[in-house]
Design a protein around this nucleic acid. Structure first.
Lengths: 224, 224
DNA sequence: GAGTAACCGGAGTATCAATCTCCGAATCAA
DNA sequence: TTGATTCGGAGATTGATACTCCGGTTACTC
């Protein structure tokens, strides 16, 4: 009922606008640090604002998250497109992966949103929008992978979905890195990338995921 | 108060003994399928027994888990010692890793226990015993790693703790495999192992964990 | 085959955490 | 100044899990 966002009915009162801003900023910080399981109460508190205020501005956590993470997704997509312009196909692929992973290493919330369902404890359904944006990433990624494969520096039996799988695996490394206080995730990303390099080692066992399966994996919610 | 286990005071009555057995079996199955977050209520039900009965035999989930998983840990240790007897150092290492991971792929509970704190949502503290057994695994593993490195088939900058890290990473792959209905985890284990092979690819970035850090990672509980 | 100690079952209690509401008080803007 | 809007945060609501309690049953014993 309370006018929550859009609908250009009326400009916000000054205090309302300020608080909205505060909430968005706090949300960004808290989600980054604690992941999506952070509470709206928590975020409100961190913003120095009452819970009621939080719920007046955003119907729930999901809505706040959507407002916050839209940009980040856009940035990732942009960096994927940019990678396609890089000359060396291997560098293009690896560069993209590295920036993507690095961004998620700094932002637990972003990572959980990207891997929601598979990795995240309590999959959040920020319905539609963000999921669509995430899925849109697979197009440029596929291009990057194919190019690197044709060029011969990426092993022939690699698949685009493997990149997603690598992202999933990074999750644990993020928690580990945080616990330990240094970016150990880089080590294991590197290890995986070395595994992806074309080498005289024989084929990978088991087929890669196809896109449907990846979808399944992404939406596999914790069963009742 | 209720005589819970040991203390050779008196043999259990027949029905009690039967139910205890049923609970252990059910526990094994349920933990394997649903992980350690399964409820004692749930297990009791699956055993076809009342909740009260469950709590009379085991003070809580932890106690049941300890009773169940002791063997599994013992088996892992045995397979590590066995691996040390294998001639080819690379095969020895890889073989051990594969059986370990395979066992955990079939048993979510076991995996959560091995990686508790880092991977598991709600780290269970089965105090002492199991943790000790788990930690004891690192001795033979270190030996396996050193041997494979000396032999030249394992990359020189690999560390024993890397094996643990690989185990952590497998967690997501297990959920993924389950969601998708085929053992995709094998693919990514293989990928990681290929990354571990000695190849002309340059050193890994970032030092490996030392044992203290690994300990930290293992016990890093989800903060309040 | 009767008595009793041990055990069973599961409804019910206790606890905890997260989500969201409500309303008196404070704030803005006309 | 005044009324519409927004604030704040105590607490109602919901849902999950952990564990207890006790009337009734079962299995040993003599």
């Amino acid at each position: 009922m309370t006018s929550t966002a859009d609908s250009p009915t009326r400009p916000l009162r000054r205090d309302a606008a300020r608080n909205r801003r505060l909430l968005l900023d706090a949300g960004r910080e808290v989600f980054a640090a604690r992941g999506l399981e952070a509470t709206l109460d928590e975020i409100a508190h961190h913003a120095g604002v009452g819970v009621g205020t939080a719920y007046r501005h955003f119907a729930n956590k999901q809505e706040l998250a959507a407002a916050i993470f839209a940009d980040d997704f856009e940035q990732l997509a942009a960096s994927a497109r940019a990678a396609l312009e890089v000359d060396d196909p291997w560098q293009a692929l690896v560069g993209f992966i590295e920036t993507t992973v690095a961004k998620q290493a700094d932002d637990r919330g972003l990572h959980e949103l990207m891997t929601a369902g598979t990795m995240a404890e309590q999959p959040i359904h920020v319905d539609g929008k963000l999921e669509t944006m995430r899925d849109a990433l697979f197009e440029p990624v596929t291009a990057l992978v194919e190019r690197a494969k044709k060029n011969g520096c990426l092993r022939a039996d690699a698949a685009p979905t493997d990149i997603a799988a690598i992202l999933f695996m990074m999750g644990v490394n993020f928690t580990m890195s945080e616990a330990v206080g240094r970016p150990v995730w880089k080590r294991y990303l590197w290890l995986l990338l070395d595994g992806l390099r074309a080498t005289p080692c024989g084929k990978l066992p088991v087929e890669a995921l196809d896109f449907d399966e990846l979808q399944t994996a992404l939406t596999a919610a914790k069963k009742h």
